[in-house]
């Protein structure tokens, strides 16, 4: 099923898998491994590898900011015991988290297909 014959493709897929693991199962730990992978291969000769490494690290950082910092700010500004803080927070967190997961799915499918990460659905 996963015919990852080329090392470049394996690397890109690993980056995407670690990005998803960071969001879904091992927050923090998976990011540290991903960041290590990024530091080691950031000057890789393949643009395909660089695009997936860059995308996953960049989006992991954005996910951290938007999911942790913004959520924390919402609680601090809105008040912990305020009902609308929780209405907004739960909706915000669910939507933003799911969006980052879907970006990971898009990236993973492109890595599996040996394609550079792209936002465009037309590139599918």
């Amino acid at each position: 099923m996963l015919a990852l014959e080329k090392p470049e493709q394996r690397l890109a897929v690993w980056a995407e898998v670690l990005y998803l693991l960071n969001l879904l199962l091992l927050p923090g730990i998976a990011f540290i491994i991903l960041f290590g992978l990024f530091v080691k291969h950031r000057r890789h000769t393949s643009a395909f590898v660089r695009s997936h490494l860059k995308q996953t690290v960049m989006f992991s950082i954005w996910a951290g900011i938007l999911l942790l910092l913004v959520s924390l700010s919402m609680v601090m500004l809105g008040g912990f015991a305020q009902v609308y803080t929780w209405v907004m927070l739960i909706l915000y967190f669910t939507v933003v988290h799911a969006s980052f997961v879907l970006i990971g799915v898009l990236g993973l499918s492109q890595a599996l297909a040996g394609k550079i990460f792209s936002w465009k659905l037309s590139s599918l």
Binding site: V105, L106, L108, S109, Q110, L112, A113, L124
Partner: peptide, 14 residues
Amino acid sequence: FFMMTVYAFNMVNQ
């Protein structure tokens, strides 16, 4: 459902 999403996008990509 997660696998289904990966699979659908993967198939369309390939």
